[in-house]
């Protein structure tokens, strides 16, 4: 379906990311539903995923994103960063977010 996206694997905390314009999103109850316009594929996000998705409306660095989450969720920063990177790489591979150049 999607080819292996090397940029996704290379994502680091220093990168800035934003929602992809070709990804439609909407909330149903407490879930966020995503749809890729290009592929027609769907995705669903739970509460925390939906919270992160809300924070991706404007370009944000992965580090800033993790800082914001660390202030609200009870987990250490390293754990949050590791989880967030896995989550974001998944979204990148599905072209639902993109890396902002520069």
């Amino acid at each position: 379906m999607w080819g292996l996206n090397l940029t996704a694997l290379e994502l680091t905390a220093a990168d800035r990311v934003v929602r992809s314009e070709q990804c439609l999103s909407t909330e149903v109850d407490s879930e966020t539903v995503l749809m890729s316009v290009e592929s027609g594929c769907y995705g669903g996000l739970d509460d925390i995923g939906s919270d992160i998705w809300r924070r991706l409306e404007k370009p944000v660095s992965v580090a800033e994103l993790c800082d914001g989450l660390a202030s609200e969720y009870e987990a250490d920063h390293a754990t949050i960063e590791a989880d967030v990177l896995v989550f974001l790489r998944g979204l990148l591979q599905k072209h639902m977010i993109e890396i902002v150049p520069g």
């Binding site: 149903v28 769907y42 669903g44």
Partner: peptide, 11 residues
Amino acid sequence: MPAMEAVALLT
């Protein structure tokens, strides 16, 4: 149906 499947179905 879960929300995501419902939205996909309706679309």
